[in-house]
Amino acid sequence: MSAVELRGHEFVRIPGGSFLMGSDEFDLEAPERTIELPAFEIDRSPVTVAQYLHFARETGRELPADFPTPAQLDDDPRRAQHPVERVSWHDATAYAEWAGLRLPTEQEWERASRGADGRRFPWGDRFDEARAVVWDNAKALGVTTVPVEQFPGGESADGVRHLAGNVEEWVMDALLPYPGSTHTSPSASGQCRVLRGGSWFYTNEYARGSFRRGALPEFTGYDGAGGPGFRCARSV
């Protein structure tokens, strides 16, 4: 068993090929075009509280805001299976390096979510509250993040979980307008890193596979709104 597997990473292999990237609905997501991508592997689920705790203990890295206390983890062991949140892009990158992995590229992330057929959400073209936790349902359900084994119906065509909602995910890339886009804004000037997938705090428009927004790499979210998590990838 490899070191990666010991640290609780379960990968899904995404075959190489072409996929649909972008959407003409919003200038920051435009243009929609076909991208060729080699095969890669990506975490089946976002990095969990348990995984991040392992990393923080080994490296002495400070725990993020709102991280559960040891007492909370003892009281409710499922709490360790929530995605870690409120980490910066630097934290996410450091974790990935420690684990011998890397963050997914923006192209890889979008391919994982939209599959080979360009679907709008990981499971298909229509939003479905039974498959993801976003603001639409989180408020009434009384939840923020949820354990990664919940909402199994939200799996992508390749079996990747929680790409829509739950916790927003850092990817490797800086946020820039795609070539051919007319978008200009301070956030797309190269200072920000890309966040994908939306979260419990945002309505389902953020959970579309083509949605992207940027945040400064030191961004860790806000009290009352949660903040970014991530998953890892590796080339094959």
Partner: peptide, 8 residues
């Protein structure tokens, strides 16, 4: 919007 607020 966030397109500005993210940076400023």
């Amino acid at each position: 919007t966030w397109e500005t607020g993210a940076v400023t």
